[in-house]
């Protein structure tokens, strides 16, 4: 039924939006398409998976978690650890990408950092395959979801958790960018590195900060996606990367709110189209929308915040 599909669309859209926001933030400050962003998402899922496996596998830790859960009378504390751990892990990866593939590369050739992030993509994917193997790995069903029935609608606690986490993170992201000092500096840097630097903004630091922020967000999206689909694979980054890219273009380059709305829009359209038109048409529809928008409104649905300098 429609309501159920809309919930699924929101869930898928949340993943797209979280990755797309990162893309668009990085594009904003560096005019760089960060190719490896999808792989950071994938790594987030693996980090989360490893944390869950470790925490359920080692008896002492598992017992401690159980004790805490029964003491607080909640379930799913594991997920918080998985998300928090993945966030730290992918944040570090984001910083490494800056130091290895962005700073040493001469920015005068716009294609050079793009190519180096493609290199990072290949590197991350192969290292992941080496370490974890190339097969699909399933997320242990560590939590028994509680199902809620609202009219015809069934929604379980894990779905609610995913949606709440995604919305909370994106909300704080919006606040950080629009309302805080560092956000102001990020927006200033997006408009002009040179002017921002001459006003005392440490542009190198802002770039690093944005990469870490975007990577943390992608990492969390990865964990949530892994939990939702209950499996992860070293190849899961590519599809999300491509779809999030579509969202960034739909929303308007550098436009955070645009990326968010476009993410949810695309997720919903994809789910509805596979439900009612068959899943074969899903990608066809996605890219048709993209091409149509680019033809008639090249700045995206909500206008671009990026100007050519």
């Amino acid at each position: 039924m429609l309501e159920q599909q809309l919930i699924n669309g929101l869930m898928l859209g949340a993943s797209y939006a979280m990755v797309a926001i990162g893309y668009t933030l990085i594009f904003g400050v560096l005019r760089l398409l960060h190719f490896a962003h999808g792989e950071v998402f994938m790594l987030g899922a693996f980090f989360g998976l490893q944390i869950v496996i470790y925490m359920t596998g080692v008896e002492v830790v598992a017992a401690a978690i159980m004790a805490i859960e029964s003491f607080l009378d909640v379930k799913g504390i594991l997920l918080f650890f998985a998300i928090f751990g993945a966030m730290i892990g992918t944040g570090i990866i984001g910083a490494l990408v800056v130091f290895v593939a962005v700073r040493p590369v001469d920015n005068k050739f716009p294609l050079a950092p793009l190519i180096s992030t493609i290199g990072v993509t290949i590197l991350i994917q192969n290292v992941t395959i080496m370490v974890f193997g190339g097969t699909l790995r399933s997320f242990p069903a560590s939590i028994e979801p509680v199902r809620y029935q609202i009219g015809d609608l069934t929604i379980d606690s894990v779905q609610i958790f995913i949606l709440v986490t995604a919305f909370a993170l994106m909300g704080s992201m919006w606040y950080l960018i629009e309302k805080t000092r560092i956000g102001r500096a990020i927006r200033a840097t997006s408009e002009s590195h040179e002017t921002a630097a001459l006003l005392g903004v440490n542009v190198n630091f802002i770039v690093l900060f944005v990469f870490i922020l975007a990577s943390c967000l992608a990492g969390v999206a990865g964990v949530l996606d892994g939990v939702k689909n209950s499996n992860v694979s070293p190849f899961m980054g590519l599809e999300v990367a491509v779809k999030a890219l579509v969202c960034m273009l739909l929303g308007g380059l550098g436009n955070i709110v645009g990326a968010l709305v476009a993410g949810f829009l695309l997720g919903t359209v994809e789910i509805l189209s596979s439900a009612y038109l068959g899943s074969g048409l899903r990608d066809f529809l996605t890219f048709s929308i993209l091409i149509t928008i680019l033809l008639f409104k090249p700045t995206g649905l909500f206008g671009t915040r990026v100007v050519r300098d």
Partner: peptide, 29 residues
């Protein structure tokens, strides 16, 4: 900065003065 308000434009240059270190910026964020 065309996309920032007048007040925000002015506040950008207060940035450096109030972020003596990377750590304090992260802590603040």
């Amino acid at each position: 900065f065309e996309d920032l308000s007048v007040l925000e434009n002015v506040q950008v240059s207060q940035h450096g003065r109030h972020f003596p270190s990377i750590w304090s910026a992260v802590r603040h964020a």
